[in-house]
């Protein structure tokens, strides 16, 4: 495993560090993400597992994590990039890994990150959504729940359902 990481470091010139057995991570600049993923794909990272986003609201950044899997060497590599939270635009990787198209669509919907060049950034799961993207940390879920859904008992209840009582 360590041999492979060393070899990978020498070939690609990337600063990969091992975190656990079978797991390593790597941080690159936002501009280099496409080149990095192309290099890694050539080295045998054929599976794009998922794309996740972390909202670091204090640092005003979104961190995108691209999870890759190397089947022969059994290495799970996490490629991380930081992007500006106020202007979250990043280049798509959906032409390198076609599955990324859907993950980018999800991140776009849940965090509002825009992916330049993704041909299919249409709405994904949410319907009739008018608020800011719900997974952003400045979206106040409880406030929204309080406004949208009633949780208190009403006094002028029109129809009170019966309960199955156990006694």
């Amino acid at each position: 495993m360590s041999d492979f990481i060393t070899r990978l470091k020498n070939i690609t010139g990337l600063n990969i560090h091992k975190e656990k057995l079978y797991q390593a991570s790597l941080k690159v600049d936002k501009e280099k993400i496409r080149k990095t993923l192309l290099d890694l794909k050539k080295e045998g990272f054929l599976q794009f597992t998922t794309l996740t986003c972390i909202d670091w609201i204090e640092e005003k950044t979104f961190q995108l994590v691209y999870h890759l899997w190397h089947r022969e060497e059994k290495l799970h590599l996490k490629v991380k990039i930081d992007i500006d939270r106020d202007a979250p635009i990043v280049e798509t990787v959906s032409d390198i890994y076609i599955v990324a198209q859907t993950y980018e669509r999800e991140v776009k919907e849940m965090f509002g990150v825009d992916f330049k060049g993704n041909k299919r950034l249409i709405p994904f799961i949410l319907e009739d959504w008018n608020e800011i993207p719900p997974m952003r940390r400045d979206f106040n879920t409880r406030e929204y729940v309080k406004d949208m859904y009633e949780t208190e008992d009403r006094t002028e209840e029109i129809f009170k359902p019966r309960w199955k009582k156990y006694d």
Partner: peptide
Amino acid sequence: WDSYATIKK
């Protein structure tokens, strides 16, 4: 109970 997506009652 505090999910934005589900109804409560």
